[in-house]
Amino acid sequence: MTETAGSGFEFKVLGPFEVLRDGVPVPIRAAKLRTLLVSLLLDANKTVPVETLMDHLWGETPPGGARNTLQNYVLRCRHLLGGTGDDGPLLTCPRGYLLRVDDDRVDLHRFDTLTGRARAAAAAGSMETASALLAEALRSWRGEPLQDIPSETLRREVAPVLAERRLDALQSRIEADLALDRHEEVLPELRRLTAAHPLRERFWAQRMLALYRSGRQAEALRCHHSVREILAEELGVDCADGWTVSRRRSSWRRSGWGRSRQRRSSTGSTTGSGCWPTTTPRTPPAITGPWEASSAGATTCAPSTSGCSGRGCRSSPAGSTWRRPSRCAPVRASTATTSSTFWRPWRTSRSWS
């Protein structure tokens, strides 16, 4: 019967590399042996080609007799893990080597399992469960991965991928917390994350949303200006379209579509928390400003319209209950749906009428 390396062993790669047996650390001082074991653990229960192992061990310039040296390292790993030959956890395959290990004995694979369950919970609408699973998964991280492994290939190609997976999980956990109205709780964490990862736009967007929901709209707008300056200076780009959409939604809320702490249906029953009511007496405007309606109901003011600047604008449709600016700004007739031509309440001193 084939054994696994799970009996009494636990392997940790999400941070400084550790091997524990029955809770007691097992010292592995040989640098190449550590590199070999980590390479096998990253793809546990899969065949790792000999060429890949050699690349991780020696890079692009393997020494003469590298294959024989690799076989010696494999033999030493087998002695460490227990068992020999095909009965042990480390198997020889036609193209490479395979390490059999229970998923719950490797922190990386335990992390992947928990994040997968969290995604399924979020898709089913159970944000409380998703947040708890992601928090548990993130506790597996103890620091920067693979930094104590003497392999340039692993640090260059694998470590950034692992770090990105951690940030994705962290972003998803904050997303779940925001859906649960924990905006004030995540603000200190988001402040640290935007400082540590200034080019990661999603953290900035989450921070702005949390500030807005906490009643700190001015700080949210300052965050927007900060990230725009950072992206322009570092990358020479403007914010993505998603930022503009968020700003337009903020305009809608200021003009009467405001977010309540709990979403309510048209009958007044509570349906949970979120940005928009579950049902509303009427559909929000389909275009982008607080003064605009859908193209079917919008009209273009003539220069003689009262209160219009005479340069052309869009007025609210008849029967509209939401307010519009006291003075209309010009909108090019040929580009009426271009965001750059819309009146932006956060870029002017004009007040609502």
Rank of each mutant, 00 (worst) to 15 (best):
T2V: 13
T4W: 02
G6Y: 02
G8H: 08
V13F: 05
V19T: 01
L20S: 02
L20M: 08
V26L: 10
I28L: 15
I28C: 00
I28D: 01
K32F: 04
K32L: 14
L33C: 01
R34T: 01
T35A: 13
D43N: 10
T47D: 14
W58E: 13
E60T: 10
T61F: 03
R67Q: 11
Y73H: 15
L75T: 13
G83I: 07
G83L: 10
G85N: 07
G85T: 04
D87S: 14
G88A: 03
T92C: 11
R95E: 15
Y97A: 07
L99Q: 07
V101K: 06
V106S: 07
F111Q: 01
F111W: 03
F111V: 02
L114P: 00
R117W: 06
R117Q: 15
A120K: 13
A123F: 06
G125A: 07
T129S: 07
A130M: 07
A132S: 13
A135C: 09
S140W: 04
G143M: 05
Q147D: 12
Q147F: 05
D148I: 01
R155V: 03
R156T: 14
E157Y: 09
P160K: 03
A163E: 15
A163N: 06
I174A: 06
A176H: 05
L178S: 10
R182P: 01
V186I: 13
L187H: 01
A196I: 04
P198F: 08
P198M: 11
W204I: 09
M208Y: 00
G215K: 07
G215T: 07
E219D: 15
A220Q: 03
H225A: 15
S226R: 14
S226Y: 05
R228K: 10
E229A: 15
A232P: 00
E233S: 14
E234H: 06
L235G: 01
G236S: 08
G236N: 05
D241T: 09
D241I: 12
G242N: 09
V245N: 09
R249K: 10
S251F: 06
W252Y: 15
W252S: 01
R254K: 08
R254I: 02
W257R: 14
G258T: 00
Q262A: 12
R264M: 12
S265F: 08
S266K: 10
G268S: 08
S273D: 09
S273A: 15
C275H: 12
T280C: 09
E292Y: 04
S295T: 13
A298V: 04
T299M: 04
S304L: 08
T305L: 11
S306H: 02
C308T: 06
G310W: 06
C313H: 02
S316W: 00
R323L: 11
P325L: 03
A329F: 10
S334I: 08
S340D: 06
T341H: 12
T341E: 12
R347H: 10
S353V: 05
